[in-house]
Simulated assay, not measured.
Amino acid sequence: MVDAYMNRLVRDKEIPGAVLVVQQQHRCLLSKSYGAYTAEDWSKHIISKSTLFDLASLTKVVATLPAILLLISRDKLNLMDSVQKHLPDFRFPHITIQHLLQHSSGLPADLEPSVRRHHQRDIMQEVLACNVIGQPNEQVIYSDLGMILLGKIIENVAGQSFQSFVEQEIFKPWGMHHTSFRLPEQKRGQAAATEMVSGKFVQGIVHDEKALLLEGVSGSAGLFSCADDLAKYAKCWLGITQQSTIPFEWMELAYTKTIGNRGLGFEVWNGDHSLFCFGRGWTKGSFGHTGFTGTSIWMDPIKKAFVILLTNAVHYGRNTRIREIREKLHTMIYENLIT
């Protein structure tokens, strides 16, 4: 049923293609690729399980969150640290690391005016100059800006680039050897092309405009990865694979320390259907994240099950039905595959 639904989505041009992985405990329940995409040079490419995808906002939880938790576990950072302590140019002393992770800082969702690919703008300066639109802990406003700030904090505290820190300290020990920012030119052809811009498809170069202007690396977007690497990542979070990089109690805190439907970085299922796009039936406390390009990861800590969906839905334009598709697919998976 799940397989038939995925094939139908491709046939009906709802999505160009995808890689879908479903696993529970040590049992892989489904691992399959679907469809194809048009490359930058207009050649047609079949999507395979090794295809790289622009993760978009999955970067927030695949790179930024574990890097922050690692620095906390090494006593280099504290959740209650003022952002200003690490970024003196930030003007709001009452906003903490935790507020940024939980999207409860009062910062707006995005920069105004919206950033476009051709713009010449100093994104970091604009983020630092941004005014708040509410008080900390007043409400959850999902904000790219807070995550961009966290990426900069990681650099300052670690004393090295965000890119090299996460690649050496997180991806390497977790065996995520195909996950990186800024794909070298020879690897760009392995990435599923995203959107058409100025008459040709963007391939192997970050889709997110702010990340592009930040030279492809930000705490909010910029990562490329494949399904196998994200499966390794999910197994670490669920304790299916034992790892010693980040103490498990800190990882657990990321989806149990919640405000509304937000943990530390993650979206957490709290029973409010109006806020939820990962389907019905999953255990309360299940957690994950989505990416604008069409990527998502969802994990159930009770059932020890996870779903990785990688698709370049924006290939056909930004007006996608990915939210409805994701909800239907995850409901179907839970009802038919998870025990």
Rank of each mutant, 00 (worst) to 15 (best):
H119L: 02
Q135K: 14
D208Q: 08
Q98C: 11
S105I: 02
S218Q: 02
I322R: 07
L70W: 09
S164R: 09
R121S: 05
L65P: 06
Q23Y: 03
W237A: 06
E126F: 01
A109V: 00
K328R: 12
A158K: 03
H94N: 15
R8E: 14
G271V: 08
A56W: 00
K210S: 13
K85G: 00
V166W: 08
N7H: 13
D208N: 08
I333G: 09
G271C: 09
L9Y: 11
D75H: 14
V115D: 09
K235C: 14
N336V: 00
E209I: 00
Q139E: 13
K85N: 03
A211K: 08
T311W: 10
N156R: 15
Q243D: 12
A39M: 11
M332R: 12
Q135V: 01
V140I: 14
V217S: 06
N137Y: 01
S164M: 02
Q163G: 00
L52V: 06
I297D: 12
G189H: 09
A129Q: 07
W237V: 04
V61Y: 08
Y142A: 02
V157Y: 06
V2H: 04
Y34W: 11
L230H: 10
N336Q: 15
T331H: 10
K187W: 10
G219C: 06
L55Q: 06
L77E: 08
S180Y: 05
V21T: 12
G189P: 00
F53Y: 14
L238C: 11
S274G: 02
F181K: 11
I338N: 03
D228S: 14
S105N: 10
L223H: 04
K187S: 10
D228I: 06
H289R: 13
S161Y: 09
A67S: 15
N137K: 04
